[in-house]
Design a protein around this nucleic acid. Structure first.
Lengths: 111, 111
DNA sequence: CACAGTACTGCTCATTGCGCAGTAGTGCAC
DNA sequence: GTGCACTACTGCGCAATGAGCAGTACTGTG
């Protein structure tokens, strides 16, 4: 199975969760996601997701200079983003439970 | 959040799980998935997935007549399919755990 | 015979993550 | 001081996959 397909639709949620922790900029969000265990996320995917979430009105954005490279575009959750995070978390949990039940049901039969 | 995006990559796994239970034909697999809680799966998606899994060599196929409609194309897991089910289940579980941890970490901070 | 229910196929589209190239700033090695 | 590594972001085009929708076809019922 391909992990990149599993990310579909979930990357939004992961990015929102990471940003809820603390505002962050793209490059940093990538690192935090990788540290969390999502080893395979590509940077372009994260930048794209950030842009999409921002366009959807879930994020605020501000640019700060950096001493160790080019400027950084920080993103943070606004009310809409927190609401989205909340509802997406529920959707995801429900979905994960459904899948877990489906897979467990199979094992019971096999046992 | 859109559940159809969450299905990406997972529908294969769900179909394999359902078929591991018992051989089935497309129309029936759709019903079983819906009964399991995956309400939004479209029939075309399932038929497409079955064809893909068959093309990938994970399924066997045989056609049986039916008394209540057109013939039915049954699918069943072969060794390759069961191996795929096994490994995909692990991949999915690991991924789900990672996401759960990411979301839980957020809540701890928020608390 | 029209129509609903069953069962499958094929075409096209939308979404979304990825690969890759390009731009640009800072600092270090040589 | 030129090249190179690291930081940081953008944009273009591609691939995978689920969905929408139309079409085909068989059975049974009114």
């Amino acid at each position: 199975m391909d992990t990149t397909q599993l990310l579909k639709g979930v990357l939004d949620l992961a990015v929102l969760a990471v940003l809820d922790d603390e505002d962050g900029y793209g490059y940093d969000v990538v690192r935090r996601l990788r540290a969390a265990g999502l080893d395979d996320v590509a940077d372009a995917s994260v930048y794209g997701t950030l842009r999409r979430l921002f366009a959807a009105g879930h994020l605020t954005s501000y640019v700060l200079p950096s001493v160790e490279g080019p400027h950084r575009k920080y993103y943070g959750l606004n009310a809409s983003g927190r609401a989205e995070l909340e509802s997406s978390t529920k959707t995801w949990s429900g979905f994960a439970d459904t899948m877990a039940a489906l897979l467990a049901a199979r094992k019971e039969v096999a046992a």
